[in-house]
Protein backbone atom coordinates (compact mmCIF):
# COMPACT_ATOMS: atom_id res chain seq x y z
CA UNK A 1 0.00 0.00 0.00
CA UNK A 2 2.76 2.42 0.98
CA UNK A 3 4.74 1.47 -2.16
CA UNK A 4 1.68 2.29 -4.30
CA UNK A 5 1.39 5.65 -2.54
CA UNK A 6 5.04 6.47 -3.26
CA UNK A 7 4.63 5.46 -6.93
CA UNK A 8 1.63 7.79 -7.26
CA UNK A 9 3.58 10.62 -5.64
CA UNK A 10 6.48 10.00 -8.06
CA UNK A 11 4.17 10.29 -11.09
CA UNK A 12 2.70 13.43 -9.53
CA UNK A 13 6.15 15.00 -9.25
CA UNK A 14 6.99 14.06 -12.83
CA UNK A 15 3.83 15.67 -14.21
CA UNK A 16 4.42 18.81 -12.14
CA UNK A 17 8.00 19.13 -13.45
CA UNK A 18 6.72 18.62 -16.99
CA UNK A 19 4.10 21.34 -16.46
CA UNK A 20 6.75 23.81 -15.32
CA UNK A 21 9.57 23.21 -17.79
CA UNK A 22 7.83 22.87 -21.18
CA UNK A 23 7.87 25.78 -23.62
CA UNK A 24 4.51 24.81 -25.16
CA UNK A 25 1.66 26.23 -23.08
CA UNK A 26 -0.92 23.66 -24.25
CA UNK A 27 1.34 20.78 -23.18
CA UNK A 28 1.78 22.51 -19.84
CA UNK A 29 -2.00 22.78 -19.35
CA UNK A 30 -2.50 19.10 -20.20
CA UNK A 31 0.25 18.18 -17.73
CA UNK A 32 -1.57 20.26 -15.11
CA UNK A 33 -4.77 18.32 -15.81
CA UNK A 34 -2.90 15.03 -15.42
CA UNK A 35 -1.47 16.39 -12.18
CA UNK A 36 -4.89 17.10 -10.69
CA UNK A 37 -6.19 13.70 -11.86
CA UNK A 38 -3.35 12.02 -9.95
CA UNK A 39 -4.07 14.23 -6.95
CA UNK A 40 -7.66 12.99 -7.02
CA UNK A 41 -6.42 9.38 -7.08
CA UNK A 42 -4.24 10.23 -4.09
CA UNK A 43 -7.26 11.64 -2.25
CA UNK A 44 -9.14 8.41 -2.97
CA UNK A 45 -6.26 6.33 -1.63
CA UNK A 46 -6.29 8.42 1.56
CA UNK A 47 -10.00 7.66 2.25
CA UNK A 48 -11.50 10.97 1.12
CA UNK A 49 -13.72 10.01 -1.85
CA UNK A 50 -15.86 13.16 -1.86
CA UNK A 51 -12.81 15.40 -2.24
CA UNK A 52 -11.60 13.04 -4.97
CA UNK A 53 -14.84 13.48 -6.96
CA UNK A 54 -14.64 17.26 -6.65
CA UNK A 55 -10.99 17.37 -7.64
CA UNK A 56 -11.54 15.13 -10.68
CA UNK A 57 -14.48 17.20 -11.92
CA UNK A 58 -13.09 20.68 -11.28
CA UNK A 59 -9.31 20.24 -11.54
CA UNK A 60 -9.15 17.85 -14.46
CA UNK A 61 -12.31 18.92 -16.29
CA UNK A 62 -13.41 22.50 -15.85
CA UNK A 63 -10.20 24.36 -15.03
CA UNK A 64 -8.32 22.66 -17.88
CA UNK A 65 -11.04 23.81 -20.30
CA UNK A 66 -10.88 27.35 -18.90
CA UNK A 67 -7.08 27.40 -19.35
CA UNK A 68 -7.44 26.18 -22.94
CA UNK A 69 -10.04 28.88 -23.68
CA UNK A 70 -7.66 31.47 -22.23
CA UNK A 71 -4.65 30.20 -24.19
CA UNK A 72 -6.53 30.50 -27.46
CA UNK A 73 -6.72 34.26 -26.91
CA UNK A 74 -2.93 34.53 -26.52
CA UNK A 75 0.09 32.94 -28.17
CA UNK A 76 0.72 29.25 -27.72
CA UNK A 77 4.51 29.27 -27.50
CA UNK A 78 6.37 30.94 -24.71
CA UNK A 79 8.73 33.71 -25.85
CA UNK A 80 12.33 33.93 -24.76
Amino acid sequence: MIILLYLVILVLLMSAICAIFTKDLLVSVVALGVNSLIVSALFFLMHAPDVAITEAAIGAGLSTAIYVFAIRHTKRQEEK
Binding site: D50, I53, T54, G61
Partner: peptide, 17 residues
Protein backbone atom coordinates in the same frame (compact mmCIF):
# COMPACT_ATOMS: atom_id res chain seq x y z
CA UNK B 1 -22.79 8.13 0.29
CA UNK B 2 -19.67 10.26 -0.20
CA UNK B 3 -20.32 13.32 -2.28
CA UNK B 4 -22.76 16.14 -1.98
CA UNK B 5 -23.69 19.48 -3.48
CA UNK B 6 -20.35 20.74 -4.72
CA UNK B 7 -19.17 17.51 -6.44
CA UNK B 8 -22.59 16.97 -8.00
CA UNK B 9 -22.69 20.53 -9.32
CA UNK B 10 -19.19 20.20 -10.74
CA UNK B 11 -20.13 16.95 -12.53
CA UNK B 12 -23.24 18.60 -14.03
CA UNK B 13 -21.13 21.55 -15.20
CA UNK B 14 -18.64 19.19 -16.86
CA UNK B 15 -21.57 17.59 -18.70
CA UNK B 16 -22.58 21.00 -20.05
CA UNK B 17 -18.92 21.58 -20.99
Amino acid sequence: TPGGGFPGGAVIASGFL
